[in-house]
Design a protein around this nucleic acid. Structure first.
Length: 274
DNA sequence: ACTCTTTCCTGTGAGC
DNA sequence: TGCTCACAGGAAAGAG
């Protein structure tokens, strides 16, 4: 389940593999994964392009092309980007193969097809809403306590629902919201408008902390997340609450509870979190 | 305007 | 052993 740390790990490796490369040939798979533009236009526009930069915004990976357009990937739940030799067997649900000028191949595969590929000038992608408006980057200087307060104080929703909303803070998902809430001592089902200033400040500290720690560990390979080279991250071994419902809290020993909050399986410690 | 629920998808594993 | 079925969840659409 790629969230910000997994996407950041892939984006960093992709930057080293792709910047300066030229795309020679393109092969598309299932038509629905390429959301924009239509396949014929994509096939006409993409080959010959040079990659000038690779960046991340929320859970999106943006490959900036010399033409001024962006090639954008969202990995959904089961999407994988890979760079490998062309003779490596491709997985069953491979939706994009791009031959590079160094002889390697960029691939995107996604069994569940929740992910997406976009290509176009940034302004066009945003105007056509295939690239959504995203909130503040939690690892940027703009992620101030005041900025998070603005997100949390303006709503009656649960903390879980508010932090899942990419328009407020970009890049958080089920895993790292539960982890940040545990570190901050805040229950995910707590209503935002009833949080104390101390609780909001604790979340402001905890969010970057869990994300940076996960990036250092190259992400959490819970289900089938793999990096650009098909290797697992190690952060799944460090998770305090995610996937541990019914087992003891690693901090206090109480049995971790779990329930559906904002439509997602959510785990918390009944004594550490208020 | 805001919040909550449902839908999209397929692989996996529990249970019979 | 082989089958069914619930479950996983990011984001968007639909309902309230």
């Amino acid at each position: 389940m790629p969230e910000l740390p997994e996407v950041e790990t892939v984006a960093r490796d992709l930057r080293a593999a792709l910047v300066g490369r030229q795309v020679m040939a393109v092969q598309l798979g299932h038509p629905k994964v390429l959301r924009f533009p239509v396949p014929d236009v994509f096939r006409a526009v993409f080959p010959g392009q040079h990659v000038d930069a690779v960046t991340r915004r929320g859970k999106f990976i943006l490959c900036e092309l010399r033409s001024g357009e962006d090639l954008v990937f969202h990995l959904g739940m089961t999407g994988h980007l890979r760079v490998c030799d062309p003779d490596v067997p491709a997985p069953k649900h491979t939706h994009l193969r791009a031959t590079l000028d160094d002889g390697r191949e960029l691939r995107y595969d996604d069994a569940r097809r929740f992910g997406r590929i976009l290509l176009g000038p940034r302004a066009v992608l945003e105007d056509s809403r295939v690239l959504p408006v995203l909130g503040v980057e939690p690892l940027s200087d703009e992620f101030t306590a005041t900025r998070l307060d603005a997100v949390l104080r303006s709503t009656t929703r649960t903390v879980k629902a508010a932090l899942l909303d990419q328009r407020g803070v970009a890049g958080l998902g089920n895993i790292y919201i539960d982890e940040a809430c545990h570190l901050a001592g805040v229950r995910p089902q707590h209503r935002c408008h009833t949080l104390t200033r101390v609780q909001r400040a604790a979340l402001h500290d905890a969010i970057p902390a869990v994300l940076l720690s996960a990036i250092r560990n190259r992400g959490s390979s819970i289900d089938d997340y793999r990096d650009l080279w098909n290797a697992k991250g190690t952060n799944q071994e460090r998770l305090q609450v995610y996937g541990r419902g019914g087992r003891p809290c690693l901090r206090c020993g109480a049995i971790l509870r779990h329930a559906t909050v904002a439509g997602r399986t959510t785990v918390w410690c009944p004594t550490c979190q208020k």
